[in-house]
Nucleic acid binder design. Structure first.
Lengths: 340, 340
DNA sequence: TAATTTAATGTAAGCGCTTACATATTAGTA
DNA sequence: TACTAATATGTAAGCGCTTACATTAAATTA
């Protein structure tokens, strides 16, 4: 057994000062004489003292941590944003606490409550659609909150991201311009996923404007996986062999669709075009490489860190709505619609 | 402004009991009369009371959280294990606190210190190789610790995983049996990554036994990315055009290598075989599909949860070393060595 | 030199909970 | 019925910090 963990008091005794001075030395060194600081730091080293986070949090009402909830960590697109978020927070001596909601509002609520109860100074979530209790709970704690990955000029809460309706329209326009008229959509899970839902809304609007009706059986909802992408592709083409363009909810589904096309001997893009969403790393290396939309992950992460830190520092809760651009990246899976 | 957050005391007052009773009602309900419980729960609901984690941690010396540090969250292979770990912990009402070390021992040390200082009841790390201060720091807190993703029968600390030397041998044996004699290796980063290092050791041993020398210029270290896989592949084949088998440190690198081969017009597996490691979801859908080794991610996650919870419950710190099997999955990127 | 600021440190009251111990209540036993 | 054992609740002392306020020492000013 080790000896008991040293406390602030032990350090104070050893350095012959009061606990208050040690505390100051740790939190506001400029308020303590250099000479005293040295004495204290030496005592800290000798004792191997490490502050107790719980006690500190209880006394100061701050934890120097920010909670983040993403739908799933099994997605490199979130991890990229998280990485920059974390880097930003670390610079300011803040720690990131990460959990995932598995695309469920109930789980998300529970996770938020855990985080709040543990104590966090700010919270970052993905999307704007959350369990109503979540906002209540967060408001009770008066901490800044930001919804990532979306942009809504009328949002009641701060958001940093891009306009998914616009993005959905963007990719559809690209296909319309190539002359496509018969569409299929593998949307991914739209339930509890406002991003996917809005992208879908956008593409549907754009098709409507072009005078193209998207019947329900040309749309397939499924969980995001390569396998589901492939299966759904087959389902779509069984129903509508005339489809020439398949819009996928994300890149993973699109990879599956591409595989499905190859299984059927459908040439991409000569016979049929496929689009993804997110721009994951592997896309340029696929054959054919995948047309997609790039999410500004890095900037979302950076801006989120800046925003949260600013709010914490100023003890304010100013709503900011930051729009970033999502960019269409045309590669080899999209081409002119085949002649009839 | 909302009214101030209610405390245990508020609940006690409202329910006309002492704070001790409320506390018991929350932590050991069977010690409180059902009638009183109802009264208390009603008060809790009406006030919207949520326990303060910091206060609870300070008073009880427990946090009901487990810290986990993975090299990077940008890897679906870790996320799968994490998912099952999280599920296991949640069942026992524990929360998972996740951070990443970016493959750096220094960052890992800092993250560990943050976690310890915040308060965690157990810690899970990946691999056995850590900053020496890490073990010291953890020991000081007397909490259970488990190293995931590795198996070492002589390990000083608990570990759950598989034998990477064996895995490295396994994949090499497969290629040797196919008649390959000229090898190249894209190992990925081996620095601060004992798993990659041991896999490399294993494959080298196996080649040695077969009387094949692996010169240094047949081995390339690089960060794990598709692009690096492709670049490294070209470098290898520029140096040694006779190479017929390329062993990659993980699947992502292997995908890059596969791409490199296609760029060079090298047929896989007719002219050259490629192997990966991890068995990520996309592999079966590649063309050709990738031969790899499957990591028992799910079982690692589950077992880690079981182990940690058990140790916390029993207040023990019994060292366990659990070996799981990593399985060779032969697909289309490996075939007989071409005839000279 | 005395009065007034300013800077450095100490004192001590909590932060919101848990828990050992004391006390009150009820059930069980002879 | 009186006594013991078991059960339920209350009392109050911390857990290890931060911080408002008090105190003291040093610097500045008139």
């Amino acid at each position: 057994m080790q000896k008991k963990k040293p406390t602030l008091q032990d350090v104070a005794t050893k350095a012959n000062v009061s606990t208050a001075t040690v505390s100051r030395c740790l939190n506001a060194p400029d308020k303590v004489r250099t000479e005293v600081q040295q004495k204290i730091n030496q005592a800290i080293d000798e004792l191997g003292y490490v502050p107790d986070g719980a006690a500190r949090a209880l006394a100061s009402r701050r934890t120097n941590t920010v909670g983040v909830i993403v739908p799933t960590i099994d997605n490199s697109i979130f991890s990229k944003a998280l990485q920059y978020l974390q880097t930003g927070l670390n610079k300011a001596n803040y720690t990131l606490l990460l959990t995932n909601n598995s695309f469920s509002e109930e789980i998300e609520l529970r996770e938020v409550q855990t985080l709040l109860s543990r104590g966090i100074d700010g919270i970052v979530m993905v999307g704007a659609q959350h369990h109503p209790e979540i906002y209540k709970a967060i408001n009770r704690y008066q901490i800044p909150i930001v919804n990532l990955w979306i942009y809504d000029p009328d949002s009641e809460y701060s958001c940093i991201g891009f306009d998914h309706i616009k993005a959905g329209k963007q990719i559809t326009t690209h296909l319309l311009e190539l002359g496509h008229e018969s569409f299929g959509v593998i949307s991914g899970t739209r339930e509890n996923n406002d991003r996917a839902e809005e992208r879908f809304k956008g593409l549907k609007q754009q098709l409507d404007e072009a005078g193209i009706t998207l019947e329900d059986d040309r749309v397939i909802d499924c969980r995001f996986s390569v396998e589901n992408g492939s299966k759904s592709f087959h389902k779509l083409l069984d129903r509508h062999p005339d489809i020439t363009a398949v819009i996928c909810g994300n890149d993973v589904l699109a990879i599956g669709a591409l595989h499905g096309a190859q299984e059927r001997g459908i040439r991409v893009p000569e016979d049929l075009s496929i689009t993804g969403f997110d721009n994951i790393e592997i896309l340029p290396f696929l054959k054919p490489s995948l047309t997609t939309i790039n999410s500004p992950s890095r900037r979302m992460g950076e801006k989120a860190a800046d925003y949260i830190l600013q709010q914490i520092k100023d003890k304010t809760n100013i709503i900011e709505r930051i729009e970033l651009e999502a960019e269409l990246i045309v590669r080899e899976t999209t081409g002119p619609a085949p002649k009839r």
